[in-house]
Write a protein that binds this DNA or RNA. Sequence first.
RNA 1: GGCGCUAUCGUCUAGGGGUUAGGACGGAAGAUUCUCAAUCUUCAAACCCGGGUUCGAUUCCCGGUAGCGCUACCA
Length: 436
Amino acid sequence: MLRVRFAPSPTGFLHVGSARTFIFNRLYARHNGGTIVLRLDDTDVERNTDASVNSIFEGLRWLDLGWDEEYKQSERLALHRQIADAIFQKGLAYRDFTPAHTGAVQINDSEKSAANQTWLFNPGMRELSRAESDRRAAAGESFALRFRVPRGTGEQVRFTDAVYGEQIKSADDIEDFALLRSDGMPTYHLASCADDIDLRISHIIRGQDHLSNTYKHVLIFEGAGAKPPQFAHLPLLVAPDGSKLSKRRHGPVVSVTTYRDAGFLPEAFINFLCLLGWSPKDDRENMTRQELIDAFSLEGINRANAVINFKEPAATPDETFDPKALWLNAEHIRGLSIDDLSARLLPVVRAAGFPIAPEKMLAITPLIRERIKLLRDVLTAADFLLVDQLPPYDPAELIPQKGDAAMALKVLNRAQEVLAKTEFKHDPLDQSLRAA
RNA sequence: GGCGCUAUCGUCUAGGGGUUAGGACGGAAGAUUCUCAAUCUUCAAACCCGGGUUCGAUUCCCGGUAGCGCUACCA
């Protein structure tokens, strides 16, 4: 039975990269008739927020792809500790009584180079006898539980990634990572693997930033007596300068709800994200959800990071987004029926303060369907039908491409004359203006 | 610093030992349309560098460079 999972940690809003990971998991599950699990990886109590949980659900709901099962990691601590203990009892882990320090502390260069030479061990802890270890634990001394990586044995850890192929690393290059923190809480690595085992996850599709963590995970799976699942790592989504996407540096363009609020169609947004790091390999670009499900395969995933080509400081909203995302959204808008598009436009117009009737919206829709890129554009494309007084505009816009100012003036004067003595209805207006 | 991953037009990508290196977005020009949009046509635009293997490398191998990731009792 094919089972995949999407496991966001609620420490921020739903990120476009996370959204793509979710989409790929969903597509893979749907393509193969499998199950997708949504698991909140919330073991970092310090950084978890309710606002973040809400933002994630808001984003996922907008995507409208759904999921089959839902779990919270924080409710499964007993399982995590049980698996940690099983690994410990097999002698594959040891207690580290070294006082905790956080990696967030500033370290200067000399400390750093010293740390680089000693990254592998906390002196003595690995070799502590079981009796001594038990005695100190019984005395109430706090400890972190570390995996005893088989270093110095010539052993290699290996796995086959569905995207990156055969991966091999010498155990000598893997540090003794923590399983349990000194407060007894599981680390990400432990909790994630324990849950993946318990939830019978068959395929782990996640960001490439976990590729080198996967060796640790393989060690945990094997240590727990479980067969590691199939891994598939996804190339990362990065900013135009190649740096990783961050809210602080790049602003709202990295948040899914920004796309929703700007008037992207969820199906267009999904389509756009799918094309970053994956290809159907047949030159198709504008694809429906069903076409994406039918075409999706791990073989189509590419290995190099993909740039989301947004503009850094965002002058006009239209220029903020990746031009291809905008184009795809316009394509999907044009593909919608008048009824459907009208229904989606209505709340946008109403939210902007125009209490428009559905019938009027339906009448306006065909007029603008081919000229808007974002749902929000209805407010500028059809403003003359909504407001009494048009906002100021640049007179230069009145000059046709193949004309000049004098010509424009002449045409406008003539139009004014005609308009003055014509009944304000479609047919008479059309006839007299054409004639003029 | 150590370990690893990656490298095709500005961007997303296809391709692969011999190709005019294909498509798309964006850009430019034109057609069409009362205008704008849409649509259509055309154009410009790429195999990171150096070795090796080979009759022949953009493709395979090695090295370099660059970018990215991991190197936390974060996830």
